[in-house]
Design a protein around this nucleic acid. Structure first.
Lengths: 149, 149
DNA sequence: CACCATTTCATGGGAAATCATGGGATTTCT
DNA sequence: AGAAATCCCATGATTTCCCATGAAATGGTG
């Protein structure tokens, strides 16, 4: 399955619907008719994470591998299943953002999709900019020829 | 079989009936007409656990693997079989919650279904919220300069 | 290279189907 | 027969589906 790239800003309508960026839909064309997605609050505070169902199997496998008596197991089951929603992309290429997810990520009118390879993030636009700036700073920058600051 | 996701609140009527969330029923569509479920008091105190019969086979296998002389075997057999009830979903998508299970989990008017992947929980709504909060705390939450919710 | 024709996107709103839930009517057991 | 459990129909609210539109992008052409 193709990877997810880029930054795309779309509008959330009165019914809680948003168009999934065409670039993302194109990446998983062929597995249809409609790709099933899983949405859940991200482990990174402040955004919603979206996964194509086939990739979400990674979490199922992690959970299955945990010991039955491991207390963390319930924690993961909550994050992976109870806090998540499974949904389909409609005929117009939109998804229905559930209220509790939108509220938690403070999504109102405009939302920002960030491609993250296997999955994507949905941020409030200003928060997305802050996240990008903060995380860019974590990766080293190389210089050649110019004196390093 | 598809996994069970999300949190769904439904009402328990005077006759002890509750609608099974449509999202759950959709997950096991195809095994019909009606999916058979197994309900039993959860090993996690305070809630009822519900299993689609096909997934319940996991317990049968675990029991079969236990040594005949293992004293735990009788304990498991009690929990897995004697305390459990097998029932069907009716034409309206509801199940009849047996009194002793409802009483044990203190279910009265409203009940909360939690998807847990292979199975689901039924909680009294306030208890569900507490359970979710407690288990979420077991998994870490990361922040990157973005405003924490 | 400029211009026009087509297609694709993103978005809005209204119609139709589904969901959850209540209240009988009928059957079964004692 | 009385009580209890089961089946069946009815209904409002919600959700899903479907059509329509403007903007933008794409492609082809003079």
């Amino acid at each position: 399955m193709k990877q997810l790239f880029g930054k795309h800003e779309n509008r959330l309508d009165a019914k809680g619907r948003v168009s999934v960026p065409a670039a993302f839909r194109a990446a998983w064309k062929g597995a249809e008719p409609a790709m099933t997605l899983v949405l859940r609050p991200s482990l990174i505070a402040g955004c919603v994470e979206g996964w194509p169902l086939p990739h979400y199997a990674k979490y199922e496998a992690e959970l299955a591998a945990m010991d039955e008596t491991d207390p963390n197991r319930q924690g993961w089951a909550t994050k992976v299943y109870s806090d998540a929603v499974e949904l389909e992309i409609d005929a117009q290429g939109r998804i229905m953002l559930p209220d509790h997810l939108a509220a938690e990520a403070q999504l109102t009118e405009a939302v920002c999709f960030l491609g993250r390879g296997t999955h994507f993030h949905i941020w409030e636009p200003a928060a997305a900019a802050a996240f990008l700036a903060a995380t860019r700073a974590l990766a080293p920058r190389l210089t050649f020829g110019a004196p390093a600051a």
